[in-house]
Design a binder for these strands. Structure first.
Length: 559
RNA sequence: GUCCCUGUAGUUCAAUGGAUAGAACAUCAGCCUUCUAAGCUGAAUAUCUAGGUUCGAUUCCUAGCGGGGACACCA
């Protein structure tokens, strides 16, 4: 890639660490820059005189003769201005000819990794907290794939807890068919009348024994719940290679517990079975309740096993789970380590989604369900579309609004760093201005519309000759930013943070909109027009690639 | 009490230890006979406090203050 090649060349020639290069805060200062503080210290020289020396060296070397327009020394900084023609033509050609070189690297060396996410509970509704999890996991898998990892998405579904029994109880007694509503309403009933707990306990016991009427109802409600999940996954266009169920893992987990008990990793305490991790300052992990029933870690232990069985050669297992379970995972990983696991487990935590009025939970029933939010956004988008396109059919409006709503929701969840709480304000989300997927899609659709109107056949374009016509500073700046995308992909992977892609994408489109406003494309002189069309095509490829790393599809032609 | 995260503009978020701390929303002032104005331009406004490390700290360290979370039978 061009920027890396340039940095590498300079670094090699002058024996400098390649990582010392930075991008200047604004493009008036240069395209790439080398701050010389540390190097000057090492070489016992003043940064400024060292900068001047290197500058002379670069200028006198014929390797760099066509690459740089000029080189400036500003105090301790050495600022390189890349030749405009060279930068533009190299960039556009590589986007058009070999985009995989720009949008894909082999940083991960095909290391096999698994991402476990969307660890939803059946018998509960999917709310916007889960949405963050699903969208984050999906995006991370895509970013890791782009970084050359062999990444696989799996999901672990919790279908066996006491919450399922509560839902069954409500379903059975109140004839409520909407499973999502059953749980929160059951919790409310239980609070009013604690006698119900006994019934719920009996239901749970039947479920665990796997027979009788209650077990049947459990299966029935589970299936209904899974249908609801499927609906959401389809809307969000996410898919898992494997889905693990707690109910399938529990027996294997119990065997492991026995084994660990024998090996002294677990012990009995106060009637329960625990892992005592006080020595590691990790407190105590309860595994089996004093009444003999299994707790969450039992399934986790079995799942750790399964994943390495199912994905042979697996090097690393990522678990995308809410930050509130950090301690739990530290404990679990410590237990696995004590049991002799050599494998690498990493908890990718993210903070929760709260409402402006406070915390959200499916227990209290104040959660904003995915379905509700999605419909609300579709509705608002449809209203707007109708205003703009009186000639569009209702079907077309609805279809477009659906696509947009998915993009908007995903972007809302991903544009903020995972370790920040998202305060989800529905009014804010319905405003569609500024740092928002709609802004980007709107611009993208305008770009596509220009290409449609131009009706230009790219396959016959003689790029070398054509690109000479791109003479604007903005055109160079756009190309420079296209090139920076490679670094963004690597960074987002290293930091496990898709928001870096979202932020980059937004600022890139801002830059393009500036260009769009200032420069005429279809009205430009013939050759300039064609060159600009090729540039726009490159921008479209970039934007669609960036969006795809966020799991956002861009199959929208009009808006 | 212990541990984890966090504190930047009126609000929501940015800023690999580096140059003039950036956006978006809201506010104010402008731009549609012109490739889709869900757009663009301009104005105004900010690093919790005190120390330390460093040539250089919003960033790293220590302490304090504020916010959130987790800490044995929830997941």
């Amino acid at each position: 890639m061009i920027l890396n090649l340039i940095k590498e060349k300079i670094a090699k020639t002058f024996n400098i660490e390649e990582s010392l290069f930075v991008y200047p805060p604004n493009n008036k200062l240069g395209d790439i820059s080398l701050p010389l503080f540390s190097l000057a210290k090492e070489r016992e020289e003043s940064p400024n005189s060292l900068a001047l020396k290197i500058k002379e060296g670069v200028l006198s070397s014929d390797v760099f003769i066509d690459i740089f327009e000029r080189i400036e020394v500003v105090g301790p900084y050495l600022n390189f201005f890349i030749n405009k023609k060279y930068l533009i033509s190299e960039t556009v050609k590589s986007v058009v000819d070999s985009p995989q070189n720009l949008f894909h690297n082999n940083f991960g060396a095909q290391k096999k990794v698994v991402f476990e996410y969307s660890n939803a509970n059946t018998h509960k509704e999917i709310h916007i907290g889960h949405l963050r999890n699903i969208v984050l996991g999906d995006s991370l898998v895509k970013i890791y794939l782009a970084n050359g990892f062999d990444a696989h998405p799996v999901s672990f579904i919790n279908d066996f807890g006491i919450n399922t029994a509560k839902t069954v109880w409500f379903y059975k007694n109140k004839k409520e068919k909407n499973i999502g509503l059953c749980y929160s309403q059951a919790v409310a009933e239980l609070e009013k009348n604690s006698d119900i707990n006994k019934e719920v306990g009996e239901i749970m016991s039947d479920i665990e024994k796997r027979h009788g009427e209650n077990y049947k109802l459990w299966q029935e409600t589970k299936d209904l719940s899974l249908l609801d999940f499927k609906k959401v996954y389809d809307i969000l266009d996410v898919d898992f290679e494997k889905t693990y169920f707690e109910s399938d893992l529990i027996d294997e987990g119990l065997e492991i517990v026995d084994d660990y008990l024998k090996r002294g990793i677990f012990k009995k305490s106060e009637g329960a079975i625990i892992a005592d991790l006080e020595d590691y300052k990790l407190g105590v992990l309860p595994v089996i309740r004093s009444n003999g029933t299994a707790l969450y870690p039992v399934a986790d232990l079995a799942l750790a096993n399964r994943k390495f069985q199912d994905f042979s050669g697996l090097k690393k297992s990522f678990l995308v789970v809410d930050v509130r379970q950090s301690l739990h995972f530290k404990q679990l990983f410590k237990v696995l380590e004590l049991a002799g696991y050599q494998n690498d487990f990493t908890h990718l935590s993210y903070d929760f989604v709260k409402l402006p009025e406070g915390m959200m939970s499916s227990r209290s029933g104040n959660a904003v369900s995915f379905e509700f939010l999605f419909e609300k956004i579709v509705e608002r988008l449809s209203q707007e579309s109708k205003k703009r396109h009186e000639d569009w059919s209702d079907d077309k409006i609805l279809e477009n609004s659906h696509k947009l709503a998915v993009a908007i929701l995903k972007f809302e969840m991903l544009k903020i760093s995972p370790n920040k709480i998202i305060t989800f304000d529905i009014e804010e989300a319905l405003r569609f201005e500024g740092f928002n997927a709609l802004y980007i899609i709107y611009s993208l659709v305008r770009m596509k519309s220009i290409l449609r109107k131009a009706d230009f056949d790219f396959s016959f374009a003689d790029l070398d000759r054509l690109l000479i016509n791109l003479k604007e500073d903005l055109e160079k700046n756009i190309c420079l930013n296209i090139l920076k995308f490679s670094d963004v992909i690597v960074g987002a992977g290293k930091d496990n943070d898709p928001s870096e892609i979202a932020k980059y994408l937004f600022s890139f489109v801002q830059l393009f909109n500036d260009y769009y406003q200032r420069v005429n494309i279809l009205k430009a002189e013939e050759e300039t027009m064609r060159a600009r069309l090729v540039l726009i095509k490159s921008c479209i490829v970039l934007i669609e690639n960036a969006f795809s790393l966020l799991g956002i599809k861009t199959n929208i032609e009009e808006i």
